[in-house]
Design a binder for these strands. Structure first.
Lengths: 188, 188
DNA sequence: GTCTATAGGAAGATAGAC
DNA sequence: GTCTATCTTCCTATAGAC
C-alpha cells in the first residue's frame, strides 16, 4: 500500500499552506500552489481530485492536527498553569513566525455562502482553541464565565494583532500581544 | 465642469466597497464590482482608468474620509470622555453592521510586496485610528504610554472580533467586544 | 458617460503518455 | 505518481458606437 511519492504528504501540504496563508483562497493560484509544492498542476489534481477546495480542506485538516498536538493538548495538560502559559506564548511565536505569518483561519474564512466545508472546519477550530484557553483560565482559578470571556478575548487579540501586523507592516503588535497574553488570559 | 453621471460617485464607491469588504481584493471580480455599482465594466474603467487597483484606492480614500469625519474628529473632540466612548461604540456598531461586515483594512491588506499604494493607505489609516483612540485615553487620565497600549489593544480587539465573527458565523464576538470596549480603552 | 462587443491572457481543471 | 499538452471558462482590460 506504500505510495512512493517524490514529495511527501507533509512537505506537500506545508507548501500549499504557505500559499493559502499568504494569498488567501481566491488569491492562491494553481500556478503558485504548484511552484510552492514542487508538483505540477496535474500532479496536484491527482492527489486532490477535488481541486483547490480540497487542497484548502487538507491544509486546514493538517493545521488542525498540528494545533491539537502542539497547542490544545498542552493547554489541557496538567503542567503548572504558569508553565502552560509560557509554552503557549512560545508555541504561538513559533507558529506565526513572530507575527510574519498570517492566520490561516482569517485568510480562508469566506463571507458569502460559498465554501461550506471550509467554514465549518474554521468554526470548529476557533471554538476548540477558545475552549482550550478557557480550560487553562479555569485551572488558574477563574470562574467558568469569566474564563470563557478571557479566552474569547485572547483569540481576538491574537487574530487582531496579526491583522495589525499585516496592515502596518511590522511585527510589533504581535510581540506586544504576546507580552500581555499571560495577564490577559489569567487575570491581572 | 459638471459631470451628469447616472450613478453618483458616492453610490458608486459605496457599491464597490461592499464587494471589496466581502470578497477581498483578489476575490472581487470586475463582474461583481460592475453588478454592485450598477455600471458596466467599461464604464468602471472610464471612471477608474487605473483598473481594479484604482477602484480599491478610491474605496480606501472614501472610507478614510468617512472615518475621519465620523470617528476620528469625534474622538479628538472636546465632548465629555464618557460621551465620546458611547459615540464610538455606536459608530462602530453602525459602521460594521453589528459585526456582519468585514473590515476593509483586513481584506485589502496584502502579504506580498504587491499593492504598495494600498498598503501605505492601510497603514496610515490604522495608525490614525490608534492615535485618535490614544488621545481619548489620555483625556481619560491615562499616561501617554499606557494610553497608547490601550489604544493598540482596542484596535486588535476590534479587528480580531470581526475575524472571529467571520470564522464562527455569528456576531456575538463583536457585540462582546463592544460591551468591553469602554473599560478596555479607559482603564478598569 | 455609458453601452455592446471583443481582444488577450490567466485561471481552474482534464487527457493521455511515460 | 508525475509529467507535457490542452481544454474551457473566467478574468481584466480595451475598442468603438451612441
Amino acid at each position: 500500500m506504500a505510495r512512493p511519492s517524490l514529495v511527501s504528504d507533509e512537505e506537500l501540504v506545508e507548501g500549499l499552506a504557505g500559499v493559502f496563508k499568504a494569498e488567501g483562497f481566491e488569491g492562491a493560484s494553481l500556478a503558485a500552489l504548484s511552484e510552492a509544492s514542487g508538483l505540477q498542476r496535474a500532479s496536484l489534481y491527482h492527489r486532490f481530485p477535488g481541486g483547490k477546495e480540497q487542497m484548502a480542506e487538507e491544509v486546514l485538516r493538517s493545521t488542525e492536527a498540528f494545533m491539537q498536538k502542539h497547542i490544545i493538548s498542552m493547554l489541557e495538560g496538567d503542567a503548572p498553569v504558569q508553565q502552560r502559559v509560557q509554552d503557549l506564548v512560545k508555541g504561538l511565536r513559533a507558529f506565526y513566525d513572530g507575527g510574519r505569518r498570517n492566520c490561516l483561519l482569517n485568510k480562508l474564512a469566506a463571507s458569502g455562502g460559498k465554501q461550506h466545508r471550509l467554514n465549518k472546519q474554521i468554526a470548529a477550530m476557533m471554538q476548540r482553541l477558545t475552549v482550550a484557553l478557557g480550560k487553562l483560565a479555569v485551572d488558574a482559578g477563574l470562574k467558568k464565565d469569566a474564563a470563557h470571556a478571557r479566552a474569547e478575548r485572547t483569540v481576538m487579540l491574537l487574530e487582531g494583532s496579526l491583522v495589525m501586523c499585516r496592515g502596518l507592516g511590522t511585527t510589533t503588535p504581535f510581540e506586544s500581544m504576546l507580552r500581555q497574553l499571560p495577564a490577559e488570559l489569567l487575570g491581572k
